[in-house]
Amino acid sequence: MASAIPVEEVAMPDLGEQAQAAASANVTSQTISADEVALYDRQIRLWGMEAQTRMRNANILIAGMRALANEVAKNLVLAGIGSLTVMDSEDVVEDDLGAQFFVSEEDVGINRARAAAPAIQKLNPRVPVHIDTDRVKDKPADYFKKFDIVIVTDMDIDTMLLVNDATRQCEVKFYAAATYGLYGFIFADLLEHEFIVKRIKSNMRTQCGQETRTRKIIATTETKEGETMWEFVRKEEVYCSMSEAIGSQVDKKWRQRRRKNVGSILPGIRALWEFQQNFGRLPESTKEDFKAFTTVMTEVAKAIDVPPELVKSDFIRLFVENATAELSPVAAVLGGILAQDAINVLAEQEQPIQNLLVFDGDISAAPIVVLVSQAEED
């Protein structure tokens, strides 16, 4: 095991001389050292040396260091990414202690990113961890160019939209995610992402060409392992921005039953974002907010073309009561899904989230809905 790499605070847009040197060394190196092979043996066996090398070369930003970000950071650092920058402009408060495992009572009053970074670093001293205490929405677009993936967690909708616009300018992959008590979401904008799916070859020949409205098959190869013939299918997913997605409807080809099966959580999350934009905050457990949220959710359900019966008073009551809560089990589930998806994206393996996963912890459901711009629909 290598000696611990000191946590570095990042005040300027660059990662610092130490991180730049490390990144440069990673880019030029085509092999992983013997001790790294031993450390990451299990996952190298799972997804291969090439995928592990891509992860080792990746620089990732996580903005917003609350419970969800804790889970994502933990999984990414343990996987052996190239570097992690944690960003948060807020200080640790007592409410953070209930669900966030990188901070303790001694950290109350200390910046969240600064407080969490040492514990993150201890998980894997090989991965440089950098600190940025600025607000992510104050960063110029060029700031994001040095990252391979930008992950924004537990931010308001306007901040998520702003950062996504910036990452698109820089051609950087983007995730946004948040938890609201028992509920939450993950949104992915991976631009144009290619990946490989390994599967047992069927009797039907795989045809190259458009597979869905967002995905196409580019190429296929075959190999025999023992008595089994395997097929490697290279695909490409094309994504839209978050601003385009939230202005779209569900797939016009969906039948009414499928529209209903997305549950109340889809219009609920979309209504919460609109509520945030209208009132500048999350809804609270008051009669006025229940009424206002019901109105917004009713309008959203109609706008995205899902059945009006999904606007249920029981769901709204639980959703609004939970909106400002932070629960570690929900953060663990969503954080695990998000981190694994990011790892798969770096490894260029498996089907990534396309493009909105909504989570309803009350009924243990996590449907994924493809939302594309209306222009693409037409």
Rank of each mutant, 00 (worst) to 15 (best):
E8M: 14
A11P: 02
G16H: 01
S24G: 13
N26R: 14
S29P: 06
T31M: 08
V37E: 15
L39C: 04
L39Y: 09
R42M: 03
I44V: 13
R45H: 14
R45T: 10
A51V: 00
A51K: 00
N57G: 10
A58C: 10
G64P: 04
M65V: 14
L68D: 06
A73S: 14
K74T: 10
A79L: 06
G80S: 09
I81H: 01
T85M: 09
V86E: 01
S89E: 10
E90H: 13
E90R: 14
D91P: 07
V93S: 13
D95A: 14
A99V: 04
F101G: 11
F101P: 08
F102S: 09
F102L: 13
A113R: 06
P118G: 05
I120S: 01
L123P: 04
N124E: 04
D132L: 15
V136G: 07
D138E: 15
K139L: 11
P140Y: 03
P140T: 03
A141H: 11
F147V: 04
D148I: 03
I151K: 03
V152P: 09
D154F: 01
M155I: 02
D156C: 03
D156F: 04
D158N: 10
L161Y: 05
L161E: 12
V163E: 01
D165C: 09
Q169I: 06
Q169K: 09
C170K: 12
C170L: 13
V172G: 06
K173D: 15
F174P: 05
A177W: 00
Y180W: 11
F185Q: 08
D189L: 02
I196D: 00
R199A: 14
R199M: 11
K201D: 01
S202K: 15
C208L: 12
G209T: 03
T212E: 05
T212P: 06
R213H: 07
T214D: 08
K216R: 15
T223I: 13
T223G: 10
K224G: 12
K224P: 08
T228V: 12
M229C: 03
W230P: 09
R234E: 00
R234G: 00
V238M: 12
M242K: 04
A245Q: 05
S248P: 02
W254V: 07
R257H: 03
R257G: 05
R258W: 03
K260I: 11
N261V: 12
S264R: 09
Q276F: 09
R281Q: 10
L282K: 05
T295D: 11
M297P: 13
T298A: 14
E299C: 09
V300F: 03
K302C: 13
P307Q: 02
P308S: 15
V311N: 04
D314Q: 15
I316K: 13
R317G: 08
V320C: 04
E321R: 09
A323K: 07
A325V: 05
L327A: 03
V330C: 15
A332Q: 13
G335Y: 00
G335D: 01
L338R: 06
A342W: 01
I343M: 11
A347M: 00
Q351R: 15
I353V: 10
I353H: 01
N355C: 04
D362T: 10
V369K: 04
L371T: 11
Q374P: 10
D378F: 08
